[in-house]
Amino acid sequence: MRKVLPFFLGIFLVVVVGAYWVLNYTGSNKDLATGSPYLITVEPGMTTADIANLLHKQKLVKTPEAFRLEAKFRGLERDLQAGRYEITAGMSNSEIVEVLSKGQVQRVRFTVPEGFTVVKTAKKIEAEGLGSAEKFIEAARNYTPYPYMETSDPNVIYKAEGFIFPSTYMFDIGMNEKDMLAMMVKEFNTQMNKENIPEEAEKQKMSIRDLVNMAALVEMEAVFKEEQPRIAGVFLRRLEIYMPIQSDTTIQYILGTQKEEITIADTRIQNPYNTYQNPGLPPGPISSPGMSAIKAVLNPEKTEYLYFVAEKDGHHRFTKTYAEHLKAIEDIHGPQ
């Protein structure tokens, strides 16, 4: 035993030193260093060997065998996760295994501003190179993962309109358009529950869909958030006395553009979303309202105002009668 033990101890040391050499020298990849980042996609079901070959093909690892040995030696060969990753040429096998095993997927920041529509959001996604505007729009047409989004109104263009929460998101590179939409709508639901909005709406006998519908109008009309409760009060009072809402923002939604001045001819457009021609709320929300606009509808400023017109600085002048309204328009914009 005394003679055999040193022999096996020697063999063990040779193996350890050999493994150390393989991992630290053949796994360094310094010869491949260019400093450039490369995007790679690890598909679900790919084995360590598949990943090693992919990295080798992209000239990110010198030898696939060394990469596989690294993952096996560290007990992580079954922990390499699917996803889209950014790998910089020259990273060692150890560093790459660390990234893949922790699922450090490459992500990109995307912001949905308050008041954005489905179409504007889709165009922003495409402009930033994250996906297809057409596919996002198509996904939003009938997407209703929560019961309060459902509607049987055939005039609703996009059922997801209004339920895309304005926020900043971190998308995985390569995420498809429907998954982007799902993340945004899920955030809407999360924030609504966080702020106890469904309970408040129920107390006021208002459906979530009608609440968001009204909030979208308030969001689009108010340049300054402090005016949102007063504008909400005007719209709600009009509904109470069966007076058309007459919001220019619904005309702009129909036209698909932010027109500086709405003409008389514009207000006569025959369209279900035209709140000059049709009483009550439009068929559906016309944009994604922020939480402040939603809260403004639940907590409106109660006044006798029925009209308002925009000042040149974006604030509004509120009036009680149509005669006062016409006078305010003349004061601000001159004789009509």
Rank of each mutant, 00 (worst) to 15 (best):
L9Y: 08
F12S: 15
V15F: 15
Y20C: 08
Y25D: 11
D31Q: 12
T34C: 03
T34R: 11
L39N: 04
I40W: 08
P44T: 13
T47V: 09
A49L: 07
A52Q: 11
N53G: 14
N53Y: 13
N53F: 12
L55G: 04
K62V: 13
K62S: 13
K62H: 14
T63S: 11
A71K: 09
F73M: 14
R74F: 11
E86G: 05
I96H: 05
V97C: 01
E98N: 14
G103N: 09
Q104F: 02
Q104P: 00
Q106V: 03
V118T: 11
I125P: 05
L130R: 00
L130W: 00
G131A: 08
A139W: 00
N142E: 13
N142K: 11
E150I: 07
D153K: 06
K159W: 00
E161S: 06
G162K: 08
F163L: 07
F163K: 07
I164E: 02
T168I: 02
Y169C: 00
F171K: 00
F171P: 00
E177K: 01
K178P: 02
K178D: 04
N189W: 03
N193R: 14
K194H: 12
E202V: 07
K203P: 12
K205S: 03
M206G: 02
D210W: 07
M214A: 14
A216P: 15
V218F: 03
M220W: 03
F224R: 02
F224N: 06
F224H: 08
E226Y: 15
E227F: 00
E227L: 00
A232F: 08
F235G: 04
Q246V: 07
Q246T: 01
D248A: 08
T250V: 14
Q252N: 15
Q252S: 12
T257G: 03
E260N: 11
D266N: 03
P283M: 08
I286S: 09
S287M: 03
S287E: 07
I294K: 00
K295S: 05
A296I: 09
V297G: 05
E304D: 15
Y307C: 02
V309E: 07
G314W: 09
K320P: 05
T321I: 01
A323T: 11
I329M: 14
I329N: 08
G334C: 12
